[in-house]
Amino acid sequence: MSVKVLTIKEDILSANDGKARSNRESVDKHAILMVNITSSPGSGKTSLIMQTINWARGKARLAVIEGDIASSIDADKVSEQGIPAIQINTEGACHLDANMIKKALDSLDLDQTDLILIENVGNLICTAEFALGAHKQVMLLSVPEGDDKPCKYPLMFSGADVILVNKIDVLPYFDFDMSTFSRTVSGLNPAGLVFPVSAKTGEGLEQWFSWLEEALDRKSGGA
């Protein structure tokens, strides 16, 4: 039998990208703002979400999609606050994908939701590759991780709308140079906003909240 060459040029992740687009359409239909939060393990995503839950009370109806490799500890914490929380256990996989988000959206009451925060699996490489359909990409980096991370994870830093530098309450104990960091980020991503915060003490969080409020207003205004 003769050998034939078939030219394909098809993106390997195109099926995921298609599902991400359909997730976007579903949330757009309900004028929901969906935000994807990524970070390394232990940077403080759950603490940030807990602070954001407190802020959102009376302002926006919040739901949380929790990606985790195996446990439901984070989703339990969110549920205790009376916030709808969907736990996705990736069973070892290093990222959430668009199909997992679709299933989570199916089990949320979208008519009763204004804002969805997705807590992605703690990982700065794989999560950058898989589109979920979120409107905004937010990444969290904590001071102990070091100011040299943008060039190690350029895709993540170049694609983020907001970069929160968490744990600034321990800045005096680390060699983290905020101005070097901000300069490196803006070199890769001139539109990306850097907010130094402490999810523990609350310092700096007002910048994050007002950014979120503005994004929500724009969403409900139909933009």
């Binding site: 003769s2 050998v3 034939k4 060459v5 078939l6 030219t7 394909i8 390997i12 170049s158 070199g187």
Partner: peptide
């Protein structure tokens, strides 16, 4: 150090050899 990433993200099937 002000750069745009213009290559290195590629991940696609270019072609197949079949019979």
């Amino acid at each position: 150090q002000q750069v745009d990433i213009i290559g290195g993200r590629e991940l696609y099937v270019d072609r197949l050899e079949v019979e």
